[in-house]
Design a protein around this nucleic acid. Structure first.
Lengths: 199, 199
DNA sequence: GTCTATACATTGATAGAC
DNA sequence: GTCTATCAATGTATAGAC
């Protein structure tokens, strides 16, 4: 890890990455030139190429960070005890975890959600995203089989619509707003599981 | 309207528009060059400039089409009778209508949802989108005031999450799939209003 | 670790013939 | 309504000095 900052004026990869991801989200990856990044960083274009081999590599690092965060949520869905929780409880925990990853890594996840698969880097990221989706769908199907969730809607559709709701948070959530991540996760779970209709 | 096709080999604006929107959605607006459009159309670059003044103008036309469709849904929310329906019924009707517009104008709406506001054309489209969002939020607030919807979640958050769910349909829905638009609208309304939990 | 200078491809857009 | 030819600007990336 060369994340340790020693020389004062110089940037390290993390510093450049943060600025780059912000710029990618503002203007889109393609519309963001290396020159624009250089300007924001107060560097020359070639200084950036000292840290990253290509523009694609910058994107690759950012996407890996976001995917790692999301994968960690489904990899460790156990809240406190090791007791085998039912599928709905695990699903609810995953939904809350995903909201928190979205909020905590807002720029990287935002970038991830806009990837369309036009380059090798983007296609690899999409493959990992699809694997994530399949695990969510399996969890939904399990909860349906347990009789805890309604079974009149296809599990894959449920997974897509529910995560569509969660993912849309990157479109409007800004840190420091009225809504905290915990409250937001409560709202998402409330709508997804119990609906908007007044009880 | 010069949509009427007279000369056989020549393209009209609509024909070019359809190909352009598809390309924009595949590669992103910025990554799609006029040269790529010319190639797909079997035309030269300058032939395209005969139909549209600029690349921006092509985007403008496409976004206007998508926005018009969505605005029509909230402008005429009355199903059959002119009787003043309650707010929940009107909201449900708007949700279903939005799903249908998404499915019917999938390419144009997909493009609209990816706009970030980097040019004047994009900013104008975003302004119209925000006006649409405000009308949805008002409808939700009205339904909450009537006591039909739960009031423990902010109306604006409800509107954003619900339409986040609907908008995410463009990410995976493909015409001709198992799920028809009507069925999909049923699923969205079922989850949003009544939730996933087994009754 | 940063710079200047530059190579080389591609871009959006225009001019003018047919 | 379409073409060829061309422009100026901008893009990614590299070479080599400090």
């Amino acid at each position: 890890m060369q994340t340790t900052r020693r020389g004062r004026p110089g940037y390290d990869q993390q510093g450049i990455l943060a600025v780059a991801v912000a710029a990618f989200n503002e203007h889109g990856y393609d519309a963001t030139s290396i020159g624009m990044l250089a300007e924001r960083l107060g560097l020359s274009k070639s200084a950036i190429y000292h840290h990253f081999g290509s523009k694609d590599e910058i994107l690759d690092r950012a996407l890996d960070s976001a995917l790692g965060g999301l994968e960690a949520v489904v990899d460790a869905p156990l809240p406190v005890d090791a007791g085998a929780a039912d599928a709905v409880a695990r699903l609810e925990h995953v939904l809350r975890g995903a909201v928190h990853v979205l909020v905590d890594q807002l720029p990287a996840v935002t970038l991830l959600l806009r990837v369309r698969g036009n380059t090798d880097v983007e296609r690899r990221a999409l493959t990992r995203r699809r694997a994530f989706d399949r695990r969510i769908t399996a969890l939904v199907a399990e909860a349906q089989a347990e009789g805890a969730l309604r079974s009149d809607i296809d599990a894959a559709v449920v997974a897509r619509l529910t995560f569509g709701m969660i993912n849309s948070i990157v479109e409007w959530y800004r840190p420091g707003g009225r809504e905290g991540a915990d409250r937001l996760a409560d709202d998402v779970v409330a709508i997804a599981l119990d609906g908007l209709r007044h009880p």
